[in-house]
């Protein structure tokens, strides 16, 4: 079976800095795939390359068998890849429901004239989008916040809103950049359940970045560990955490010796 996402020999330079070095990996359909590594090891850059923010200096990115590198980010979203951001990127002065509705816009057909004149076809479509957005809001347990300005939400809810917004594009693959960052253990636990539920209910493949080993071993079926832009281990999480190279990268040489 071919992979949903296949990265082949991908490298990326920032000037002289090789942030990503010859990455090759496959993300099979339906899994929860984890990318882990110390600070500055190239994880976010990898996501930025897949979502078209940067074009890789070298290598290929195949999604559903089609090469996508070099496409503009919004076109990659249309093909079925959505993401969240390590440092939230919320539309602060839009309500919760409007944040989500923006992500449905590219699927709508109403043009400028039917919008200006509020023709019946336009109103029908608006209503459909509103209902779809409300369903997502319900699912993410943000119901009581629907018309609240996003900037007034607490951090944990903003993280969920960003996931809801990404899901609103109806992706096949969703990239989560440190979804548990800044969360307490209880919130992290809830988030793990939520991610599993999202995978099952939306039939989406999940590719996530995490720092916390517990999180990764808890929900990922497959992980890739990187350091300084290069892959140091790959496989099932329970095997990978025993890998001496991983221990070294994470705990430092001393810990391994002890």
């Amino acid at each position: 079976m071919s992979a949903l996402l296949s990265v082949q020999n991908m490298s990326h330079y920032f000037g002289g800095l090789k942030a990503v070095s010859e990455f090759s990996f496959d993300v099979p359909e339906g899994v929860i795939y984890g990318l882990i590594g110390p600070n500055g090891s190239g994880k976010t850059t990898c996501f930025n390359l897949i979502t078209g923010i940067y074009t890789p200096t070298q290598g290929k990115i195949l999604f559903k068998g089609e090469e996508i590198q070099g496409n503009k980010p919004f076109r990659i979203v249309h093909k079925g890849i959505a993401r969240t951001f390590q440092n939230l990127r919320i539309f602060n002065n839009l309500s919760v429901i409007d944040n989500i509705r923006v992500a449905r816009h590219f699927t709508t057909r109403s043009g400028v004239f039917s919008t200006l004149l509020r023709l019946p076809s336009f109103k029908q479509e608006e209503e459909k989008v509103r209902e779809e957005a409300m369903n997502l809001i319900q699912l993410m347990n943000l119901h009581s916040r629907a018309t609240e300005m996003a900037k007034n939400l607490p951090y944990g809810e903003l993280r969920r809103l960003e996931i809801a917004r990404a899901l609103a594009t109806k992706p096949k693959l969703i990239l989560l950049d440190e979804p548990a960052a800044g969360m307490n253990p209880k919130e992290t636990e809830d988030l793990m359940r939520l991610i599993q539920r999202v995978r099952d209910e939306f039939k989406v493949t999940i590719f996530l970045i995490e720092h916390h080993m517990k999180f990764v071993t808890g929900i990922c079926e497959k992980v890739k560990v990187i350091d300084f832009g290069t892959t140091i281990a790959e496989g099932r999480p329970e095997d990978v955490v025993k890998d001496p190279k991983v221990l070294e990268a994470y705990l430092g040489r001393k810990a391994v010796v002890c």
Partner: peptide
């Protein structure tokens, strides 16, 4: 007419560009 445009799917899309252009692009907005 401008009110109708602003308070519509197109208008929200325009606001999203003001709020965060990169995020807007990454929820599929051209």
């Amino acid at each position: 007419l401008i009110r109708n445009l602003v308070q519509s799917s197109i208008g929200r899309t325009m606001i999203s560009i003001r709020e965060n252009e990169l995020a807007s692009e990454l929820v599929g907005v051209d």
